[in-house]
Design a protein around this nucleic acid. Sequence first.
DNA 1: GTGAAAGCGCTAACAA
DNA 2: TTGTTAGCGCTTTCAC
Lengths: 345, 345
Amino acid sequence: MADRSSESHRRSTLADVAQLAGVDVSTASRILNGDKIQRASDETRKRVEGAAKTLAYQPNLHARSLRTSRTYTLGIAVPQLDNPVYSQIILGAERGARELGYSLLIAHVDQPGNGESAYERLAQLNRVDGLLITTLNDDSEMLQAVKRAKVPFVLLNRKAKGVRNCIYFDSRQAAFLAVDHLIQQGHRRIAHLSGQVNPSTGIGRYAGYCDALEAAGIPLDPQLVDVSGYTINGGAEAISRILDRAKSPPTAVFPLTLNAAAGAIMALNARGLRVPKDMSVITVHDGPIAQVMHPPLTTIDMPSQQMGYEGAQALIQVIQGDVKRVDRQMQPLGLKLRQTTRSIR
Amino acid sequence: MADRSSESHRRSTLADVAQLAGVDVSTASRILNGDKIQRASDETRKRVEGAAKTLAYQPNLHARSLRTSRTYTLGIAVPQLDNPVYSQIILGAERGARELGYSLLIAHVDQPGNGESAYERLAQLNRVDGLLITTLNDDSEMLQAVKRAKVPFVLLNRKAKGVRNCIYFDSRQAAFLAVDHLIQQGHRRIAHLSGQVNPSTGIGRYAGYCDALEAAGIPLDPQLVDVSGYTINGGAEAISRILDRAKSPPTAVFPLTLNAAAGAIMALNARGLRVPKDMSVITVHDGPIAQVMHPPLTTIDMPSQQMGYEGAQALIQVIQGDVKRVDRQMQPLGLKLRQTTRSIR
DNA sequence: GTGAAAGCGCTAACAA
DNA sequence: TTGTTAGCGCTTTCAC
C-alpha cells in the first residue's frame, strides 16, 4: 500500500471540503445532506457548496453506510436472465433505483433444487437495504429464507399469501384482451395452453380466457384446454394433444406465454398447419422474440420494465418507512397487432 | 432510530466473537482472515472459529471497505439487457464474481448520445473495485471516461487499441466455420451481411468469410456483400439490396448477427423466397431466438456466458494485482445445426 | 448557527 | 503468538 499522503490524487473527503470552506466537518455534513432541522446560514451554505463543487466531492458511501447502517443498494433476485421479461424488469429496476440514489445488485438465484443457493443469497443480504424478488415459479422456500433474513422486500410478478409487498400484472385482464381479440375476429373455437406451476399467473390467464368466452356467450370446451407450462416444448406438446383429441379442431389458440406460443407454432408448422391461415395465435407479454418470429407474433404487451421501475421505487419507500404495504396491480399496455391472427368472419 | 443496545437481535460483530473466544479483536480478525504472516496457535484459532460459528458472524462489509478501501464489488456496464448476448455475459459474470467473494453491480449505460450518462456512471464507480465493460458499439467516449476514473477494467467482447485488458471472441474463426459449413453443403454463391460500427466484430467476421471462400477457391464477389449493421431492419435492407442488384443471386447468406439474420429472413419471406429451400442462412451467436424462429436457425454458438465468467475472474485478478494484462480470445463452441441450411450438391 | 467529540466495525502497524 | 492502538470518512448528539 502506498503512503496515503504521498498519493498524487487522493479523493477528496468531507474534511477537505470543510477545510476549504473554513467550517467544521459537521457543518459541512449538515449542509450537504440538506438537514431540515438545523439550517445553516445562507453564507456558509454557499461556501460549503462551492467547496464541494470545486473539489468534486463525492461522499464515501462505505463510511456513510457504516455510520448509518444503510447501504443505498437494492438487491434483485433473478432466476434467469435470458428470459426477456426479467431483463426488462431489471432494466426498469435499475432506473427506478438510480433515480433515488440507489444502486442495483444482482443476486442470481439458481433454480430451486440447488439446495445451498437460497442460503447463499442470505449472505449477500448484508449488502443491500432491500430485495426485489422476481420468480415465476412459486418458490416459497426462497421466500421463507428472505423473510428470515428480515430484510424488506417486494415481490414482483405475483401475489403471494403472507407477503406484505407485491406488484403484479393483471394477468386476467391481459388474457381477456387476448381472447377477446380472437373473438372479435370471429373465432369461436379457441384453445388455451395453460400454466400449472405458478398460481397467480397461470390461474389469472385461465380465468381471463374463461371471462372472454363467457362474455361472448361461447361455452367452455375442456377439450380445448391443456397444460403447457412455460416452456417451448410444453407449448408444442400441449397443442399437439389438443389437435389429436379434438373432434372439431380450434381455429385459434391462446398460449399463456411467449415460450408456449413459440412452441405451439413450431408444432403447428410441423403438422403442416399454417399460421395464421389455419390457426390464429396470440399471447401475453411482448419481446424481441415476438418480432422476429415468422410470422411476427401478435401479443398483448405488458409493462415489464415499468414493473421493475415501480418495484424499485416502492421498495425504497418501504425501506424509508414512507409506506407500510405495497399491493399494486399493473394493467396490460394493449394489443401489439402483428400477423398471427386473422379474421374468419 | 431505535436504541442500539435495546435491539433484540443485533447482528454480531467481530468484538462479540473476540469476547466469546476470550481474545482481542485484532487476533480474531487475523484468524478469520487467514493471515499468512502471523499465524495463530491452533488452540486460539479453534476457539475463534467456534465463536464465529456460534454467533453466525458475518463481517460488516462497509467497515471493512472503509478500512481497506476495497468494496468486493464488480460493476458491469451494459447498454441493453434485452440482447441475449449481454444477458448471458451477465449471468456468467455473476457466477465468476460470486465464486471469488465478489458481488456484481449493474451499471446501465444509456446509448451513446445521452450526454450525461457516462459521467453519471462515474459517480457509481465509488462503489466498485473494477468494471466489466460490455458494449457492442465502439463507444470510445465511454472508454475514455472509464480510463479517467482510474478504475481497473476489463473490456469484454472486443479488443481495442490502448486498452490493457480485453476478452473477446474469435469472430474470424466463427465466421470461417459458418461459411465453411455452407461451402460443405455445396454453396458457392454466398452473400454476407456485414457490420460497420464495431471494428473487431464486424471486421473479424468479414475476414472469416473471406478466409473460407479463399480456402475453397471461391472468388470473392463484392456484389454479394453489403452492410447490415446489427439490427433487424439493417439485415432486411442489406439482403434486399443484394438480391436487387445481383445478376446471379446467392444461394446462401451469412449475416453477421442474429438480428441481421432475423431481418434477412423476414425480407426473404416477404419476397416469397423460402428458407432453406431457396436460400440457406447461418449466423454467429446462439440464443433462444434462434430456436423459436421458423424455421429454427442454424448458428455457430459462442461462449457468451463463459466470457462473462472469465471476465469477472480476470478482473478480480487484475484488482488483486495478480496479473498485469489480460488478452484472451475465446473460440466458438461449434455448429448448432438446425433447419436453415440445406445441401445443394 | 456552528463546533467538539464520539463512534459505526474493521484492519494493520507496531509493541510486547 | 497475542494485544494495543490508531484511524478509514462519515453522521449525530450535545454543548456553546
